[in-house]
Simulated scan of single mutants.
Amino acid sequence: MLYFKTIPFPDHIQQAQVEEALRKASLKKTLSLDFKSSTMNIGTDKKFFGFEGKNALSFTRIRTSFEFLLPKLIVSVPKDQSATAYKIRLSAVPLAVCLFIFFGFYSIIVGLIRGIINVESMAVVLVLAILFFSLLALEIKITKSRVLKVIEKA
């Protein structure tokens, strides 16, 4: 998997405490979280959906239907007791969008090298990139705050 951000556990917090706190705040899922819907519109005290893999526990934030534009992130907590951080990655669909944006930038660069300037395609790719990465930054901030809140509450 392509993890793009590693976040250390808060001071004096061990892996077992993080794992226990996230398990308590999660609804268990039996399938991978990449293509599973993470939307729930009814009230619950749970903050995450969780999936237990062989080497790590994966969590994704439970979102409302109003947050459908935010890219879905997968938080991975290693089962190794000596771990000191959790990792964040994009789920499959936002990863495909990100690759599409990078392909757009690549085609623009190739066009510029060949001397072909298409301002419309540059503008579209630039606007999509700014929008996507702004929403991604917002989702990272929300997810980090929810994880921290769950850890501190436990």
Rank of each mutant, 00 (worst) to 15 (best):
G43D: 11
D45I: 14
K47W: 01
F48A: 02
F49Q: 00
G50D: 02
G53C: 08
K54G: 02
K54Y: 08
A56W: 01
L57A: 15
S58W: 10
S58Q: 15
F59R: 02
T60S: 13
T60W: 01
R61W: 10
I62V: 10
I62T: 05
F66W: 11
F66E: 14
E67H: 05
L73Y: 02
I74L: 14
V75A: 01
V75F: 01
V77D: 00
V77Y: 01
P78G: 03
D80V: 08
A83T: 05
T84E: 13
A85W: 01
A85R: 04
Y86D: 00
K87R: 15
I88Q: 00
R89L: 01
R89G: 01
L90C: 06
S91C: 04
A92L: 11
A92V: 10
L95H: 07
L95P: 03
A96I: 15
C98M: 11
L99G: 06
L99C: 12
F100W: 11
F100N: 09
F103G: 12
F103T: 13
F105G: 03
Y106V: 05
I109V: 14
G115K: 03
G115M: 06
G115C: 07
I116N: 12
N118V: 04
V119S: 10
S121A: 04
V124Y: 07
V125G: 05
L126Y: 06
V127M: 14
L128R: 01
A129G: 14
